[in-house]
Amino acid sequence: MKVLVVEDDAETADYVVRGLTEAGHVVDRAADGREGLFLASDGGYDVLVVDRMLPKLDGLGLVRALRAAGVRTPALFLTARAGVGDRVEGLEAGADDYLGKPFAFAELLARLNALARRPPLSAEPTVLRVADLEVDLLKRMVTRGGQRIELQPREFRLLEYLMRRAGQVVTRTMLLEGVWDFHFDPRTSVVETHISRLRAKLDREGAPPLIHTMRGAGYCLRAPD
């Protein structure tokens, strides 16, 4: 994955670049908005990491300019401003995700992976499949090995979220945002509880587990090896 990091704070940029490089990605960096726009314009990146506050051209302006020029590279905003309205403002400008500083590196990595592999919206599938697990989004029906599994509405949303990102690491925060619409951490074990309930329903009678816990990062739904 080729990543462009636009960040003026050298220490944060180092932290992000080193982490991404260690994870095996190719990383370019830009220290201000104008340079970032210049580099991002040719569209050669899989994903952009953009700081909100940048010299010369701020993050909002950068993403807006890119979108106006027809560059659709997914972008993630990094920001020190943990304001409530900033997330909406960022998404409206054309960013695809938003992460407040300070952040855990695992969180950033998981979100970047999710963004880079997001399927184009036009190819919206109606049935999601992983191994012998099948989720019919229209009939809202879940089967495993042909056997019907009854899920609560929230469990269904959780499973749908995981299935859409099958094979990727999904963090607790991503689940809170995507499944519960919580944009802050309520510090309860709601995610863990639901995951374990979902597991109990999915993995019956010695079937190989599909939902894996990634220590210190989150969860991943994937076919057994």
């Binding site: 519960w180 619409d181 919580f182 309520p186 309860t188 074990s189 709601v190 509880t193």
Partner: peptide, 13 residues
């Protein structure tokens, strides 16, 4: 409803 659901595990604990 959602908030109640999110806090239910903590209450349970």
């Amino acid at each position: 409803e959602t908030v109640a659901e999110v806090h239910a595990p903590a209450a349970e604990e």
